[in-house]
Nucleic acid binder design. Structure first.
Length: 352
DNA sequence: ACGCCTTGTCCCTTTACATCA
DNA sequence: GTTGATGTAAAGGGACAAGGC
């Protein structure tokens, strides 16, 4: 029995799957996670290949009970496929529509939409708590937004430039929709949340109280989380520039953005592990059931042989596995059937 | 070229807190 | 109101790579 398991990109497909057709192989390759089960000549051949690349979360599971890579047609494979778990997109995201190059952030509770002519503006109406705790470069960068020196302080028109963060934007339309919905519908909710956060010492970029002693855990707003989620779907890692830009636009410290991405990757990995475990469990159950069925069948055959002694008069039959192609060759005292590879030019390895 | 140090980032583990049933 | 479970932000530490000296 051979078990081959590959997670993520597989530099070299394991031999177990070599017999699959090109399209099947391509399918498996595209999906990225393959698992095969089959027989092998001895237990030493049993191996598990588990290659996982964090950068590519795509997974595909293929489980085959075939023991013969060269058989044609191949035996019924035991195959299970899992949809890719990761939201990471393979295709390069299209460039963001220009109309979205500047968007207000609705989750900034201190902002309120006012109509100014034909253009909506976010006006800071409440400044419940200073958001900056400038102690290092990160916080300085994050604090730029609410700095008194900021040209937008006081009556601010907060703008964000998506294209400055990412080269593309798969979900810019959805972001636009979400942001617009957020602006129009969730402003009150976010305001309440932020006020609660401020009132308990958290909120915004401050994780320390006035004395800098306690470190209250803050809860990111729905909108912040959603935007980070969208960003994660496009890039599950951040370069410093992206981190800075995200932090600035979400009114968070770069460290917070970094930690969020770390935790998000960990959650992704955990969920994928759970999915993989669940699949392997199912696979094991299936194989156990198959083994039970075959054992039963074997018992029935043995019983049949005992009850019908004429079998004894037939030539003895031996099942031998070809070491090269792993096909079963039937050998009797008078005849021998050969495996396909034995019909090929002699290689010296088939001496049945 | 090599070794050492610094810096930045990652992952893993743990902690602390918020939220909910 | 209390409690336990769950989710998650955040910190700490080790590993690793890149760059400077």
């Amino acid at each position: 029995m051979e078990l081959a398991l590959s997670l993520g990109d597989t530099p070299k497909p394991f031999s177990l799957l070599d017999h699959h057709s090109g399209s099947q192989q391509q399918k498996m390759k595209d999906l990225g996670f393959c698992m095969g089960l089959g027989s092998t000549r001895n237990l030493e051949d049993l191996h598990i290949k588990n290659m996982m690349r964090e950068k590519d979360d795509e997974k595909v599971i293929s489980c085959s009970s075939s023991s013969d890579p060269s058989s044609s047609p191949p035996p019924l494979p035991l195959q299970l496929d899992l949809l890719p778990f990761s939201p990471v997109l393979k295709s390069p995201p299209p460039p963001p529509p220009p109309s979205l190059s500047h968007r207000p952030f609705p989750w900034l509770s201190k902002n309120l939409i006012v109509e100014s002519g034909s253009q909506s503006k976010l006006v800071k109406v409440i400044d419940a708590k200073p958001l900056t705790t400038v102690s290092d470069g990160e916080e300085l960068a994050a604090g730029e937004y609410s700095s008194p020196n900021n040209s937008n302080s006081g009556t601010s028109s907060f703008q964000m430039d998506f294209s400055s963060i990412f080269n593309g934007g798969r979900s810019f339309n959805s972001r636009k929709r979400d942001l617009e919905l957020s602006v129009n519908l969730e402003l009150v909710d976010a305001t309440e949340r932020d006020h609660r956060a401020c009132s308990r010492g958290g909120g915004g970029m401050s994780d320390e109280d006035e004395n800098g002693l306690t470190r209250k855990k803050l809860r990111l707003t729905k909108e912040q989380s959603a935007f980070l989620e969208d960003s994660f779907k496009e890039h599950n890692t951040l370069n410093p520039k992206q981190k800075q830009a995200l932090a600035k636009q979400l009114n968070l410290r770069p460290r917070q953005v970094e930690v969020w991405f770390q935790n998000r990757r960990a959650r992704t990995k955990l969920k994928q592990t759970e999915v993989d475990c669940e699949y392997l469990k199912r696979c094991c159950e299936t194989l156990t059931e198959e083994n039970r069925r075959l054992q039963k069948e074997l018992q029935e055959l043995r019983a049949l042989k005992t009850n019908q002694p004429y079998y004894m008069q037939m030539p003895a039959t031996t099942l031998t596995m070809c070491p090269s192609c792993e096909r079963v060759a039937t050998t009797t005292t008078s005849t021998t059937t050969t495996s396909p590879c034995q019909q090929a030019p002699p290689t010296g390895s088939h001496g049945l």
